[in-house]
Design a protein around this nucleic acid. Structure first.
Lengths: 221, 221
DNA sequence: TCTCACCTTCAGGCAGACTTAAGGTTCAAG
DNA sequence: CTTGAACCTTAAGTCTGCCTGAAGGTGAGA
């Protein structure tokens, strides 16, 4: 029983990415690419709306206003602008959350989950490998049945490896996906985080292998 | 049906290398060497743009901005600078990826591929031949089901041969593709690496044949 | 046999990776 | 507003293991 999300975003690249990412986590996604189409849509048919503000056809704030007249569906506003004014107006009109570009996919996903407040305990959300059990929805990791306390970044790094067990994941893609995009986290930051993940995972930590000159991988079995 | 790539790069040596390398993989490449020519070009006529930032005639960021007003063609930014500010601005202007010099030819190729097949999110190309199984995405090699541990260079060399099974690949092109572009060390380095690959592949190592006076090739079947 | 290209071993140097510790940021409670 | 805790990032020191160049050996072609 997956949630239905309405995405309103004119940028095809970004839209593609978001749709792929959300679908990867089992959400149903309907994607509209301009403001006029958004005005014809019915927000009540969806569980959550992701709304870009800069749109051809109609401005996102107007769409939000109209939606709010008929429905209480949560609306997550997406905008390139980081201006207080726009943010205040969006929230005043009833937006439930506000995300500024550029953002990393994990953040959007986290906010979507927070809004839906649904644990989504389905099998596709849980990865089990060896003694590890990684619940992507609940963001909980267990090692041999014992809970492991990981921070946001530590969890996302482990999850990134676990979603493609055996594959080498490049440092760059891990940085892009997990670390703060505003910072130049190209130092040894990644190493430090992995160092902690390994330590917290105990013996299973040895399964996180370094791929020299490339990145990291989670060894299968 | 090959992809068309627009390369904007003023450095002739680097440009030559990139063009040769991309063409080697079947891409069509148009190469512009200054900013003014780039402003006259139409990004919509290409599938992907590789854009250097430091250009005579016009700055890369301005070109990116103008391109984004009319087209959604993915743009991969190339720059010697590793400054946070520049990177953030490029991404804010809609760049899809950011590569800092110096880079490995394989890295650029991997990113180009990643951009062009974005819809296939996790699809990774796998080459199977005889007892060998080479997963280009995961950077994993198996021989008769047993994993083979290869270093970055060893893997790239084997992959280069495997991508054109049966064809002779010249020493020069292998050096250009895989070895450090900053060094001119074209001595016996390549031989050493292939020596190790052969050893690590065991009996299958014999399938890496020397083409006397030319280079190497992977024997079919 | 002679020559040239290639093979293999070996050791040095160094870039990349690991770890620890300290500083800085964020966020919530008092 | 102040305090404190949790967390992220940076810096520094050390270590590991990969790359490369040299040198002697091997095999192919003339």
């Amino acid at each position: 029983m997956s949630s239905k999300i309405l995405l309103i975003e004119d940028d095809k690249n970004l839209g593609d990415q978001i749709v792929a990412h959300l679908k990867c986590y089992g959400f149903e996604v309907a994607w509209l690419q301009d403001g006029l189409a958004a005005l014809d849509a019915d927000p009540k048919e969806h569980d959550l709306v992701i709304l870009d503000l800069m749109l051809p056809g109609a401005h996102g704030l107007d769409i939000l206003k109209i939606y709010r007249e008929t429905a209480e569906t949560p609306v997550l506003v997406l905008s390139a602008k980081n201006e207080t004014d726009t943010k205040v107006r969006a929230l005043a009109l009833g937006a439930d959350d506000y995300v500024t570009k550029p953002f990393w996919p994990e953040e959007l996903l986290a906010r979507v989950r927070a809004r839906l407040r649904r644990p989504l305990l389905h099998a596709s959300e849980v990865i089990e490998t060896g003694a590890l059990r990684i619940d992507l929805g609940a963001r909980v990791v267990e090692n041999a049945g014992q809970p492991v306390e990981l921070t946001r970044i530590e969890f996302d790094l482990l999850a990134a490896l676990a979603q493609r067990i055996g594959s080498a994941i490049t440092r760059q893609s891990l940085v892009d996906r997990v670390l703060d995009p505003d910072r130049e986290g190209t130092g040894r930051t990644l190493d430090v985080h992995f160092s902690r993940v390994r330590k917290k995972l105990g013996s299973e930590g040895a399964r996180i292998a370094t791929v020299w000159g490339v990145g990291y991988r989670l060894l299968p079995l």
